[in-house]
Every structure is written in C-alpha cells, then in structure tokens.
Amino acid sequence: MPRSSTGSQIETLIQLLARVPGLGPRSARRAALHLIKKKDALLGPLAEAMAEAHAAVKVCSTCGNVDTRDPCSICADERRDASTVIVVEDVADLWALERAGAANAMYHVLGGVLSPLDGIGPEELNIRSLVGRVEAGGVDELIVAVNATVEGQTTAHYIMDQVGDLGVKVTRLAHGVPVGGELDYLDDGTLSAALRSRTAF
C-alpha cells in the first residue's frame, strides 16, 4: 500500500479537486499544493467564496438558469425583449450566448437533451415549464439553440411538437461552416447542410 505523505484534510482536498472537470489526480495534487503555498492569498478567499456561493446559489424558477437570486438577473432585466426566448441545453450554453452578446432575449434552460441511452426522457427536462411560459402569453418567438446532434435536434423537434399549436414562431440555429473553418476539413454532413442552407449575397 502506498504511504500517505500528507494529512487527511489535504488528501480530501486533493480528492475533491480531482473531481473538477479538467483536473485529474496529478493536476489536482498540483493545484492543491499551489493553494496551500498561497494559503492566505488564495486558499482562504477561495474557501470563503465557495462557501458563500454554496449558500447563495439558486436555480431560477422561471428559466432554469443558475444565479444568486430567483428570478435570475436575466429574467428580472426589464430591458430585455421578453417576447423572444432562446431555448438552450445547459447553463454553459446560456453563458456562451451571453458572452457573444448576439441577442437581447430571455432564455430557457432545458437541463439536457432527450437521450434514451442515458434514460433522459421528456419528463426529465424543463419542457413542461417552457410550454407553461408560452401558454402564459407574451412569447412571440422561441429560438431553439440546441446542439447540432441527433439527440439535440430530436429534442428541438419534440419542443416544436409541444408548442406548435400555441401560435408561437419556432426557429432554430443554422447549421454550416464555422467562422474560420476550412471547407477541406469539414465533414460531409456539415458541408451538405451548409450548401442546403446557403443564402443570397
């Protein structure tokens, strides 16, 4: 058996850090050592920030976003166009769209996509609350911004089926050549989709 070279608290810290995406056991050990070396400047404030975030974090009851308030900052923002709702798979996608600053709209986080292999059906996603938002009125357009995967697009069609009769315009993101992309490196499916979705100059 390998001998433990550190105390149990440090081992626990390393084990927990190793569960963070992007960190493995070795990099977690390095990160823990870095935190310990900068105990006052980094470890203490980080621990406080994490404790505060743990106490304050809430899931928005309207859109499913994470924030420290409910409704979240986006849903409470009156300058946003409430008639357009962008439907995303995950909070990470919401953040990506917000970073891009491409739309001044509201959001709805599904919490995943339909995935039979993972046992995720419609009931496991925030689709019912989305239908409720549309039924409540005030929504003119739903932009379904899910991934261009078979599971993502199946979810998009399922949403369309659920809200299609409610008089709301449903749109989805275009599929095609990414900015900076070279045609030579694109897969056949993306190239075909890009050709079919071509637009006039």
């Binding site: 039979p116 995967t149 078979v150 697009q153 369309m160 599929h175 897969d187 499916g189 993306t190 989709a193």
Partner: peptide, 21 residues
Amino acid sequence: EPLSLRAARLMERACALYGVQ
C-alpha cells in the same frame, strides 16, 4: 472510421430523427 455519414440528412426531418431513435 466513417463509411456513410447520414446524420445531417436525418436531422432535416422530424420523422427521420424520431425514426432513428
């Protein structure tokens, strides 16, 4: 390794997506 990439075409229609699932 790819032989026939049909997913993009399947994504065009609801019946094809539901059908493959």
